[in-house]
Amino acid sequence: MAWLQTLDRRWIFLAMLLAVALPQLLQVRVPEKPTPLVLNVFRKIEELPEGSRVLISFDYSPSSEGELAPMAAALVRHCCEKRHRMVLMTLWPDGKPLVERAISRIIEGEYAALGLQAGRDYVNLGYRPGKEVVIKTIATSLRAEFPTDDAGTPLDDLPLTAEVTNLQDLDLLISISAGFPGLKEWVQYASSPLKLPLAVGATAVQAPQAYPYIPRQLLGILAAVKGAAEYEVALGERYPNLAIPERQDAVRRMAPQLWAHLLIIALIVLGNVAALVSRPRGGVR
């Protein structure tokens, strides 16, 4: 077992590469089952009456796009299916193109047949610097922060926002969050003081920190790519047109997850075996 002690870490890197790459190249798929926290979010969007106003804040950047883009896509698709009206924004400067990508790929692409119109069915507010101050401001006055949408049209001229004064005029808030500013700030400045329903999609790193807010301050969490995969399955069960591989980015990525997790477990076991074997007899553990 001495070779384990001196194992070049690049072999571990190679093993990790293969564990993630092979399932992708072989296009392996594994089944998923929605859990209660994901279903809470799904049911909330499902039960809102058609045409409800939903704010979705894309609080992430390309560095966590691999985790969060699938859940952002699933949530936007769900809102399109339910004909909810979406107010889109971001608190991250490099999140702005991700909002635009969701609009062009999903709202204007996959749902082109619905003829959803900017200003009437969705509004892109864009980005403002200021982090949580932005949330605090729009909690009382949307126009103080965003006098116009991202294209420069005054909010009063847009049918969707003409009657929206502040966050309290919205039916649901969603933050897809990779850190600061993100879900914690939405809880602190919107859902807690205003008692507004808030659902979040979070990176795996941030998700465990959001659990204490459930259920009073948060109605549910889509935790990491698994949360997104569960949401996609729930969506597919309700809307069969979404139960196809092209609409299930996260489900697709759960196969590499499975093999990489197994590899990590194997590495932990191997590392402990190597340490156990090499421990001097009579030594202190």
Binding site: L7, I12, S61, G66, A260, L267, I268, G271
Partner: peptide, 22 residues
């Protein structure tokens, strides 16, 4: 930027092997 963050997958595997002791 996304590849820099993706590198962490490899280092987390290495850390699991070297640092996670019972």
């Amino acid at each position: 930027i996304s590849t820099i963050f993706a590198l962490l997958a490899f280092y987390v595997a290495s850390a699991a092997f070297r640092a996670f002791r019972w």
